[in-house]
């Protein structure tokens, strides 16, 4: 759409509604591809701005989330192209394939989140505290280790055990729903 072209306010409101509805799902999707929460937040910011810049290409007869993830994908690729000190160094060609594959998960985002919410309820208080600290409060493993009076290695191990248990739980729940 060219600058200054009038736009239907109702269409714009629809876009805003969809963006607001899906922004957390977009956030989670980005963090799957950019594990560091600070970097993921930056990518999300860029994505959000790009979404409204690209508003003209949004078609209301299509699904919003895959379209938004397509925009996010470009920002993720841009991030890895320009990141200088991050550790993840998949080849650019492979990242292209991986992020295309990731867009295919759009339909899974909601059921997986719902299953995960249920599975988290089954965790121990300690594991829920770990989620709160690591994911909610963005504490580093070192900070958590200090608070728990454990080693950093032990914290990473606890994260691994918890995530693996949650993955199994989520897959089991989803399999149960489809069987």
């Amino acid at each position: 759409m060219k600058e200054g072209t009038p736009i239907d306010p109702e269409l714009y409101e629809q876009f805003l509604t969809l963006f607001t509805r899906d922004q957390l799902r977009i956030t989670a999707w980005i963090r799957a591809l950019v594990p560091n929460h600070t970097a993921a937040a930056d990518v999300f910011q860029e994505t959000s701005l790009e979404l409204w810049r690209s508003f003209a290409t949004f078609r209301p007869d299509t699904d919003f989330l895959p379209w938004a993830l397509g925009v996010a994908r470009h920002q993720v690729l841009k991030h890895w192209r320009t990141a200088k000190r991050d550790r993840l160094t998949f080849s650019e060609e492979f990242l292209h394939e991986l992020t295309v594959e990731a867009i295919g998960l759009a339909d899974e985002l909601m059921p997986r989140q719902a299953a995960l919410d249920e599975c988290v309820k089954q965790l121990s208080d300690r594991q829920r505290d770990l989620i709160h600290r690591f994911y909610g409060d963005n504490q580093t493993a070192a900070v958590i280790a200090s608070a728990w009076e454990r080693s950093v290695h032990a914290v990473y191990k606890s994260l691994k055990v918890m995530r693996r248990a949650l993955l199994e739980c989520v897959e089991a729940k989803l399999a149960g729903q489809t069987s």
């Binding site: 799957a32 990731a102 998960l105 997986r112 989620i131 709160h132 995530r163």
Partner: peptide, 20 residues
């Protein structure tokens, strides 16, 4: 790749759980 992505997605979604 889907195994990897679903595991990574769980990482992304944990911040959106009630505990997170």
């Amino acid at each position: 790749r889907r195994v990897y992505l679903r595991y990574a997605l769980l990482h992304g979604q944990l911040a959106l759980t009630t505990a997170g």
